[in-house]
Amino acid sequence: MADTAFRRVSFVFGVLIVALVALMVYEMAQQSSLSMRTFGPAFLTSTTWDPQHRAFGALPFIYGTVVSSVLALVIATPISLGVAIFLVEMSPNWLGNVISAVVELLAAIPSVLLGLWGIFVMVPFLQRYVEPALQTAFPGVPLFDGAPYGVGLLAAGLILAIMIVPTIVAISRDVMASVPIAQREGMLALGATKWETTRRAVLPYARSGIVGAMVLGLGRALGETMAVTMVIGNRPVISPSLLDPSYTMASVIANEFTEATYELYVSALIEIGLVLFAVTILMNAAARLLVARTARGMPVAP
């Protein structure tokens, strides 16, 4: 009797979590329905965000989110893979443990602290040195056009790259470590160098797991709020230049939610949140499938 009761109680708490996720989806859908009815699918393609005239289009935010996150992924992936290969294939154990620990500590630093550092250290540095240098190196290239403000897509991409490196490192390290050792020994026995072994015997096996790690990192970048809000400049414009200020979906919610004075405004912001919610769930699911395919039964880092 007591056993069944105990099972049931613990089961109920499990159900509670399922219910919580369902409730979150329901609430978001419910609260954004006004905006969905008013604007329809055009909400996602309209470029005008003008609360004073009740015009809401999310495209500038979608653009800013996608560009800054993809930029972060482009910067973070090669570095992270380098670290993972170094950890798994090259470094002695003790050093590997120390470096893993340090990289994981980086993941533990709150986003707002990275943002603080971003505003007062990284942004001025970008403005004074990096951005003028980019403009001299690539004169007239639209990617680096405009005045060097410091804040903007480039700054956001860099801060996000710092934040997703630990995620990509941790997962691709685990995935590579799960490649059977015999695989490497066979290749080394044939006279291959270490790098050739890594490239032909390890990486192909870890490929889908590495892609999963990238997707998970991208998902994390898309939803990241504070650090980005502090360095991206918060201007809802679509500009091809990485040096121009931009705005992300998460930051517009962060900045305008408490200022949203009427129902439609709040509803539009929640709809942006819903889109973000849906996209991150999809990316998580996809990433987990990819990682699981490489290493069945291996615990996947959240």
Partner: peptide, 17 residues
């Protein structure tokens, strides 16, 4: 699966809820 999903939800979305 849902607990994993919950870990991945952006914290700003949690704030909205």
């Amino acid at each position: 699966f849902l607990t994993d999903v919950l870990t991945g939800i952006p914290s700003i979305v949690v704030g909205i809820v």
